[in-house]
Amino acid sequence: MEQKEFQLHDVVEMKKSHPCGANAWKIIRMGMDIRIKCEGCGHSVLIPRRDFSKKMKKVLKKHEE
């Protein structure tokens, strides 16, 4: 399985868009679970890492230090 590269504060695109219409999510916490925040309405969701890896489509914006 191909490993997707993502880091904290990257903006990612998920397979399903948020009910508010936006499909850009910012990774705001990483651990066993990953917390992502909708860039459209600011709602945040906590998902297990393996589910996140399956549901993530691509990284839209890399976080530069």
Rank of each mutant, 00 (worst) to 15 (best):
residue 1 M to I: 08
residue 1 M to W: 11
residue 2 E to V: 15
residue 2 E to F: 13
residue 2 E to W: 13
residue 2 E to C: 10
residue 4 K to I: 10
residue 4 K to W: 08
residue 5 E to L: 06
residue 5 E to M: 07
residue 5 E to V: 04
residue 6 F to T: 05
residue 7 Q to R: 02
residue 7 Q to N: 13
residue 7 Q to M: 07
residue 7 Q to C: 13
residue 8 L to E: 12
residue 8 L to T: 05
residue 8 L to Y: 02
residue 9 H to P: 14
residue 9 H to C: 13
residue 9 H to A: 14
residue 10 D to L: 01
residue 10 D to C: 04
residue 10 D to A: 01
residue 10 D to F: 00
residue 11 V to G: 14
residue 11 V to E: 09
residue 12 V to R: 14
residue 13 E to F: 15
residue 13 E to H: 14
residue 14 M to Y: 13
residue 15 K to C: 06
residue 15 K to F: 09
residue 17 S to Y: 10
residue 17 S to F: 10
residue 18 H to D: 00
residue 18 H to V: 09
residue 19 P to W: 15
residue 19 P to M: 11
residue 19 P to I: 15
residue 20 C to W: 07
residue 20 C to F: 07
residue 20 C to P: 09
residue 20 C to Y: 08
residue 21 G to P: 01
residue 21 G to I: 06
residue 23 N to M: 10
residue 23 N to P: 05
residue 25 W to E: 05
residue 25 W to C: 05
residue 26 K to Q: 05
residue 26 K to V: 00
residue 28 I to N: 03
residue 29 R to P: 14
residue 30 M to L: 01
residue 31 G to F: 00
residue 31 G to W: 03
residue 31 G to Q: 03
residue 32 M to R: 15
residue 33 D to T: 05
residue 34 I to E: 02
residue 34 I to L: 00
residue 35 R to C: 08
residue 35 R to L: 09
residue 36 I to T: 02
residue 36 I to N: 02
residue 37 K to E: 06
residue 37 K to N: 04
residue 39 E to I: 06
residue 39 E to Y: 05
residue 40 G to Y: 07
residue 40 G to R: 11
residue 41 C to N: 05
residue 42 G to A: 00
residue 43 H to N: 12
residue 43 H to C: 12
residue 44 S to H: 06
residue 45 V to T: 12
residue 45 V to N: 12
residue 47 I to Q: 08
residue 48 P to H: 10
residue 49 R to K: 11
residue 49 R to A: 11
residue 52 F to Y: 05
residue 53 S to Y: 10
residue 53 S to P: 15
residue 55 K to Q: 06
residue 55 K to G: 01
residue 56 M to L: 05
residue 57 K to A: 03
residue 58 K to Q: 04
residue 60 L to D: 08
residue 60 L to M: 08
residue 60 L to A: 07
residue 61 K to P: 01
residue 63 H to C: 11
residue 63 H to Y: 01
residue 63 H to L: 04
residue 63 H to E: 02
residue 64 E to H: 02
residue 64 E to Q: 06
residue 65 E to Q: 09
residue 65 E to T: 12
